[in-house]
Amino acid sequence: MTTRADVCVIAVAECFRGDGEIVANPIGTIPRIGGLLARRSFEPDLVMTDGEAMFTDAAGAIEAWNPYRTMFDVVWSGRRHVMMGGSQLDPMGNHNFAAIGDMKRPKSQLLGFRGAPGNTVNNVTSYWVPNHSPRVFVETVDVVTGVGYDRAAAAGPAATRFHALRRVVTNLCVLDFETPDHRMRLRSVHPGVAVEEVVAATGFALAVPADVPTTREPTEAEFVILAELDPKNTRGKEVPEPE
């Protein structure tokens, strides 16, 4: 039987479709499994890290040394698609994982800016949200770490030239920015999820098309790969089955 976590893995993998020979850098349990699955199936030229300082192939052999220093060369060249987690996202794709409240004296200090500003203006960026809720999807983020479409436009052509937010995958649905004004749009709902459920779990007005497709389930061949990549079902711990 297909689980919600299985569908999330496939939705992540689909984000990398067509990317070719770039670094796929999905961060998180399900993102990493999804990226590996994409490389094992329909996107075999993807380059991926071992989570540390090496590019390793599907068999684990080291293809190249890639310490933090050279990862910035990759990011700033644009040859990368990152999928990052986030604590807050707004309708234009602005992202926050630095702090909740005032940036300089926050209620809750989180990660900091990490690589989010550089990622979003240099390479393709997608987001992963394992707990879709109005606390994450907010009208305005407290700190702009990852740059959304409106903020990039306001910053000028150097900010927009290579800016591309592709998708947001959550435990409920897939979202994108493929609207005339780049306002976040519901792209598909996962099997068993109603559009109303997504709307209620989102703290701003999403663009919702008249017909919302259902996110596809894994193929039989993908199930075989999934069992090899994640035999202990760690994905099910990140996104448990809904009750």
């Binding site: 700033w76 630095a98 940036m103 989010a116 500003p117 550089g118 979003t120 203006v121 903020r151 306001a154």
Partner: peptide, 22 residues
């Protein structure tokens, strides 16, 4: 000079970080 930081609050909320026109 760098693209990194444009549009983010690392630039917008900190006077110590400024911009330059090419």
């Amino acid at each position: 000079p760098t693209r990194v930081g444009l549009g983010s609050d690392a630039l917008e909320k900190q006077d110590e970080i400024r911009t330059v026109t090419s």
